[in-house]
Nucleic acid binder design. Structure first.
Length: 338
RNA sequence: CGCGGGGUGGAGCAGUUGGUAGCUCGCCAGGCUCAUAACCUGGAGGUCAGUGGUUCAAGUCCAUUCCCCGCAA
């Protein structure tokens, strides 16, 4: 039996899964194997400073493996549906495609449509599960393979694979790991699914949470948050869209990106002492105050605790480690960031 | 031609109306110290991104090329 598969996806994560899937060429049982007969990806979009058109990561992989790649503007057209009907897939696999699949498409393949989602469903349904898991300070996340239905990431679960979120993980490192795990989970689960050895498990609606899309505004640092929360926020939004605050310089406010930081690990007591001693005011300095700026140490007062900045970037300039940033910029203790 | 910032010793920056190129680090040597990533003294290291032009004189003004980055996507 040769299973004809259509793969739908767009960004790096999907490209990694496609690569895994396409690399397994040998039959998974004496009489069975699969073939990716076509790939669907979003239309190329302008990127970069010059707004040049660039192929999607999935398209690149498709080209590399010589798989036909289609990039329809819309799925809900007779033409697109007809195209897919002619391809007559036995199975469709979707990974971060970027569009909702209409019901006729979900019903088209004999084995349905499977989706790879980078969270432990029913947690973090939606667009940005990786980021939100980090931002929320979760200790574990993972990848879920599920059978798609009309809802948003609401389908029955076929398999999961989990991974711990390390203190040093950011959205990039976690993404890369989940992409690899996702690919492995896919090629490991698919044979069992196709031979009917897996019974899909419904998700618990009561436990479901939603991971809404990230915007640039989410990267605005609010110093009233705790140092720990800000650390999670920074890691969750790295490398995109990044976090930033504003520094007043003369009569201008310049954008300051915070690329890397960590909560200062002092005891509560030391913390309090520093907060009191470093300020001219009798009470603790308000959140956003620079408490220390020398060598590798750049300390900012937060709503709770102190954030130690490790790497930052001012607008128009390159990213710099704290030490080098300080050597060229005069940062006065007591200055307020906003 | 989407808007904007910038390319100055090894790193990061300053350089005012054109007139001897500075600062914070780093590096090298010496000193202080029980010791040091701390402190003191001295030192090396730059055809100021490239090219052309204006001028008695250009890092600075004009033109142009290359490269980096923020916004926007």
């Amino acid at each position: 039996m040769l299973y004809k598969i259509i793969f739908m996806g767009t960004p790096d994560l999907a490209a990694e899964c496609l690569k895994a899937l396409a690399s397994v060429s040998r039959p998974f049982s004496p009489k069975s194997s699969w073939e990716i007969i076509a790939v669907l990806s979003q239309p190329d979009k302008p990127k970069g400073r010059k707004l040049r058109l660039q192929p999607t990561p999935v398209k690149n992989i498709a080209l590399q493996f010589g798989i036909p790649c289609f990039q329809p503007e819309k799925l809900r057209t007779p033409e697109t549906l007809e195209l897919l009907q002619k391809l007559a897939p036995d199975l469709i696999i979707v990974a971060a495609y970027g569009k909702i699949l209409p019901q006729p498409l979900l019903d088209l393949p004999r084995y349905g449509c499977l989706n790879i989602h980078t969270s432990l469903l029913p947690l973090y349904r939606g667009a940005a599960p990786i980021q939100w898991a980090i931002i929320d300070g979760k200790s574990t996340t993972g990848v879920t393979l599920m059978k798609m239905n009309a809802g948003l990431d609401t389908g029955d679960i076929l398999a999961v694979s989990s991974t711990p979120i390390e203190d040093k993980d950011n959205a990039q490192t976690l993404h890369d790991r989940l992409a690899q795990i996702g690919g492995e989970l896919l090629i490991k689960t698919l044979p069992d699914y196709l031979s009917g050895n897996i019974i899909p498990t419904p998700q618990s609606e009561a436990k479901a949470t939603y991971a809404r899309k990230i915007t640039k505004e989410d990267g605005r640092i609010h110093w009233t948050m705790s140092a720990r929360q800000l650390d999670s926020l920074i890691r969750g939004l790295t490398p995109w869209p990044g976090t930033y605050c504003l520094l007043t310089e003369g009569d201008k406010k310049i954008l300051l990106k915070i690329l890397k930081a960590e909560p200062l690990s002092l005891t509560e007591n030391q913390n309090d002492n520093y907060l009191k001693n470093s300020s001219n005011t009798p009470s603790a300095p308000p959140p956003g105050t620079i408490l220390r700026a020398e060598n590798d140490e750049l300390w900012i007062a937060c709503g709770e605790g102190i954030l130690r900045i490790l790497e930052l970037q001012r607008e128009g300039k390159k990213p710099l480690p704290t030490r080098q940033f300080i050597s060229g910029t005069s940062l006065t203790i007591g200055t307020q960031l906003e």
